[in-house]
Design a protein around this nucleic acid. Sequence first.
DNA 1: CTGAAAGCGCTAACAT
DNA 2: ATGTTAGCGCTTTCAG
Lengths: 327, 327
Amino acid sequence: MANIQKVAKKAGVSVATVSRVLNNPDVVTLKTRTKVEQAIHELNYEPSALGRNLRTSRSRLLLVLLPSISNPFYTEIINGIEDTAIEEGYNILLCETDSNPERENIYFNMVKNRLAEGIISMDPTVNKKTLTDLAKDYPIVQCSEYDEDGTICYVSIDNELAAYHAVRHLIKLGHEKIALINSDEKFLYARERYRGFQKAMEEFELPIRPEWILNMENVKFEDGQQAMKGLLKQEVRPTAVFAVSDVLAIGALKELNINQIRVPEDIALVGFDKIVFSNMTHPTLTTISQPMYKMGSISANMLINKIKGKAVESVILEHELVIREST
Amino acid sequence: MANIQKVAKKAGVSVATVSRVLNNPDVVTLKTRTKVEQAIHELNYEPSALGRNLRTSRSRLLLVLLPSISNPFYTEIINGIEDTAIEEGYNILLCETDSNPERENIYFNMVKNRLAEGIISMDPTVNKKTLTDLAKDYPIVQCSEYDEDGTICYVSIDNELAAYHAVRHLIKLGHEKIALINSDEKFLYARERYRGFQKAMEEFELPIRPEWILNMENVKFEDGQQAMKGLLKQEVRPTAVFAVSDVLAIGALKELNINQIRVPEDIALVGFDKIVFSNMTHPTLTTISQPMYKMGSISANMLINKIKGKAVESVILEHELVIREST
DNA sequence: CTGAAAGCGCTAACAT
DNA sequence: ATGTTAGCGCTTTCAG
C-alpha cells in the first residue's frame, strides 16, 4: 500500500511537500503540486488517517450514547447530530448501551484512549456519577437528558411544561378522569412529566387517583399495552390517558383496539415524541412534538464547540402539541 | 496527559515493559508488574489507541452501511452485527448513506485510509460498481443484499422463495385476486420478490393484472398508503395484497382502516420483514420473518474472517411465514 | 517555496 | 525477564 514516502519519491519531492499538497495546497507552486498530484494518482495513494490522527491527536470521531437504536424516538435526533457532525468534519459512532454498564465502559474508554473526541449522551440509564466524572476531563454533552445538579451541558425541552400542555389539552376537551402511563420514576423526565400532569390536574381541581398512575419499567410497546390492560380492569375507567411516550401510547392503543373501545369517543389518548409511526396508527395519535432534528443538531454543535475549547451553555427548546384524531 | 513514557519513568522501567504489562502481562514478573500497575493507576494513564492503531495498523472499527437507521428493518440486524463485533474486539460505525453517493464516499474513504478495517453493506442503493471495485482491495461483505454477478460475499434469504410462500399462503386461503405492492425494480430483492409472486400465481393459474402490480419509489409508510389508495380507486378491487415490506404493508393498512375496509374479511394483507410494529397494528400483520439477528451476526463473522484473511462463503438463510390476524 | 528532521504514542524484534 | 531501539505514516517547526 502506497504511503507518503513513496509518493514523495515518485514525485521527486520531500514528504513535507506531499503533506502540504494534501493539507495546504496554496503554499505549493502549481508545478510541484501537479507533479505530486500526478504521483498520488498513479500510486492510488490514500493518506492514512491513522498516522494523521496520531500526529494531530485527533480522531474526528464523536460518540453518541443511546440505550437502543430501535427506539424510533432517537432516529430524527441522530439525523440532526450526524448532519451537523459531518458538516464540521466529524463522524459519529452510534453506541447502543442496552443500559448495560459494561457496554458503557467500552465506550467511555474509547474517549479516554483518544479513539473518540467527545460524547453526546442520550441515555437516561447511564450512570450519572461516571458520566459526571468523565465530563471533568473530556468533552461531554447530554441530549434530551440532563441531571439535576447540571454540571454537564445539555439540550432538552421543558418536560414539565410539555406534559402540562398535554394534560391541559385533555382537560379543556372536558375530560376529568385522566390516567397517566409513565415510565420509571428513576428517570428525571418521568418525574418531570409527572409534575406537569400534577400541575394541570391541580390547576383545574381534578383529583389524581393513584391507581391511574402507572409506572412502567420499560418503554416498549408491550409495556403500554400492559398498562392499558391494567387500566381497563379497574372498576372506574378513565376517559382519557396521557402516555409519556408514543411507543407506550401505541401499545395502549393496541389494547383499546383489541377491546373495541373507541378512540377518542370512549377513551382519548395523548402520546409524546411524535415518532413517525404515531401518524400510521388508527386513529392517528395526538402527541407532543419535540424539535428532534434541532436537538440533535444543537447538541452536536455544543459538543464540537466544547472540543474546540469554547464555552457552551445548556439550551431548552420549544415543544409543540400536535392535535390529531385520538383526542 | 500521561503517556507510556511517563508511566515507564515513574515505575522505573522501560516503555517496553509497560507495553508488556498492558498487552502481555504474563511475561512480566509479578513484582515489576505491580510497580507498573501502580504507576498506571497513579498517573491515571490510559493507553492511546491512536498510537497503538498506527503501530499495528488496525483500527478495530467496522463500517455498517445502510440507507437509513429509521428503517426498523435494520435494527435487529444491527444488534446481531454489534454483539458479534464486540465479542471479537471490534466496534461498529453505523453509516447512514441516505442513498447519497457523496455520503457513501465519505465512508468508503474511511476504509481506504485505514480508519476502518472493513464494510458490511446493507444498502441496496449503493453503487455496485464502486462497491465491487473497493471489494478488490478491502474486506467487504453484504447483508440482506447481493449483486447478481456475486463477486462480493453476502448473507441473505431466498427472496423469491419467501415471496412465493407469502403469495401461496394467500392463494391457499382462497384468494384469486391478489395485488402486489413492490418497491422499485432497480432493487434486486424487488425483482426477486416479484418473481416469487409470479411463480405462485402461475403455478395456481391465476392471472397477473398489471394494474395490480405497484412499484413504489420509496419504502416509507406513505408509499404504502399511496399504493393502497391507488388500488382502492380501481374498478375491480383485489381481495388480497402482498406488500414486499412491513412498512409498506402498514401504510396500506392505514388506508384500509381509514376507508373502513375490514382486514382480512374484505382485503387480506401480507407484509415482509416482521418488524416490531407489525405486531402493534390492528389487526396484526401476517408477514415473512427473516432471521435478522442471525443475519447480522453471520455477516459480522464473515467480515472479520475476511479481515483475518480467511476464505469465506456466501450464506442463504431460512425464512418463515408468520401467520397473524391480517390473513 | 521546499527540504530535513523531530516526534506524536505505541509495539515488537533484537539484544542482554 | 527486561531494556534498547526502530519505525508505523503523518504533520510541523526550523532552515535554507
